[in-house]
Computed example of a mutant assay.
Amino acid sequence: MTIQQRLTPQTATMPPSPIVSFWNDTLAPKFVKYRHILEGGLSRHSEAVMPLLEIEQGDDVLDVGCGFGDTAIAIAHRVGETGSVLGADCCEAFLDIARHRPEKMFAPNLRFESCDAERDLGDARYDFVFSRFGTMFFTNPVAGLCSMRRALKPGGRMAHIVWRNREDNPWLIAARDVVRQFLPPPGPEAQTCGPGPFSMAGEQTTRAQMEAAGFTDIAFRRIEAKVNVGRDIEDAVSFQLAIGPAGETYREAGALGEARRAEIVLALSNLFEEVIAHEGGLWMDSSSWLITARAPS
């Protein structure tokens, strides 16, 4: 039975939300273009977190916002042939890549489906629910977290990774600050990816959201890792002007951004000149929370 088949008739027939449409129509092509940065760059957070997850052989696991499928594949190997993994995402372009990854051949217990995690993930089907840098983009965080909690069996476990404070993540904020020397910040009517990458950075607020969603035993653990921002300076500049706070500022500026692009590119190039290249690319500091919790028994 698929996620869509488990939805209520009203939910299953609802049109996509504006944010889901924006992800598919505007953001997904950019994320696919820079997959080499996003997937390779985020892998160090996954590598740090995976050994800490309470995932057991035989578990049924849901990976929310699975993206290109790398974490879902890793989890599928953890649960073994007696377990199962569903990778769920709202972007069809991401899922198409995930379904055709060569590694997928070695994970017959894994499947991928499209869904809006804020609306419905099913009821009491999973032992573990996981999300890497996905929950931050819930337009209604409590509703999205409620959906994840409902998907868990009684006493089931969850973990999600979110970015910590802006000042601890110069890989995103330094470029934004440079771009905003030339362009105004996006206005209140701007099309965005949702609340944004730092919407769950505050421990107190995020804990309150998770408690409101019905989770217990909530714990925060700080993760420090370098992230890749590009193969070289040109790649890093192009990436920042496409994705993240700098990219959002540039996109929303429209014609003004195009008119000042040469100045912005030069300033960003100067920024990345200061980043030491190693391991075939440019790497910068980043910091995230690993947040774990349980559904009530």
Rank of each mutant, 00 (worst) to 15 (best):
A190F: 02
G134A: 10
L290Y: 02
V49G: 05
D96C: 07
G230R: 06
V64N: 11
A212I: 00
P184V: 06
F31P: 00
H45F: 15
R231V: 07
A72I: 00
R44W: 04
T71V: 15
H45R: 01
F215G: 01
E263H: 06
L27E: 14
S199E: 03
A98M: 10
S21Y: 00
E56A: 15
T71R: 03
R176W: 03
A76D: 05
L42N: 15
E189G: 10
V85M: 11
M14T: 14
S21E: 15
I218S: 11
T71C: 06
C193V: 09
Q4R: 15
E118R: 04
K153R: 14
E113K: 08
G230D: 10
A143H: 09
L152G: 12
P195D: 06
T26H: 10
V142N: 11
F106Y: 15
D217Q: 13
V178G: 08
C193H: 07
H100I: 01
A219M: 10
A219H: 13
D123S: 11
W283A: 08
R149I: 03
T11H: 09
V265I: 13
P186F: 01
D120F: 15
L121R: 08
L145K: 03
A117F: 12
V179N: 06
N109Y: 08
T82C: 01
G257Y: 04
S114I: 14
A190I: 03
C146T: 14
L86A: 05
Q191W: 01
C115M: 12
Q5P: 01
V178D: 08
P141G: 12
S199R: 01
A88P: 00
L241R: 05
I173T: 15
G83D: 11
A267V: 08
S199V: 04
N169K: 02
A208S: 15
V142A: 09
R157S: 15
L266Y: 04
G41S: 06
G144M: 03
T8I: 05
N140Y: 02
A293R: 08
G69W: 02
E252L: 05
L52T: 11
R166Y: 02
V178L: 05
G254I: 08
L95P: 09
E211T: 14
V49Y: 05
A74I: 04
S17M: 02
F31C: 10
T26A: 13
W23P: 07
L95A: 09
E274F: 04
A293K: 11
T135H: 07
E274Y: 02
F182K: 05
V20P: 07
E189K: 12
V227H: 01
A12G: 03
V61T: 11
P185F: 00
T205K: 10
I264T: 10
H160K: 00
S147N: 11
M105R: 14
A190N: 05
A236M: 04
N24L: 05
V265F: 03
A255T: 13
L53V: 09
L42G: 15
L42T: 13
I3W: 10
G83V: 06
G254C: 07
T11W: 00
I223K: 02
N24K: 09
R164E: 10
S297H: 12
I37E: 10
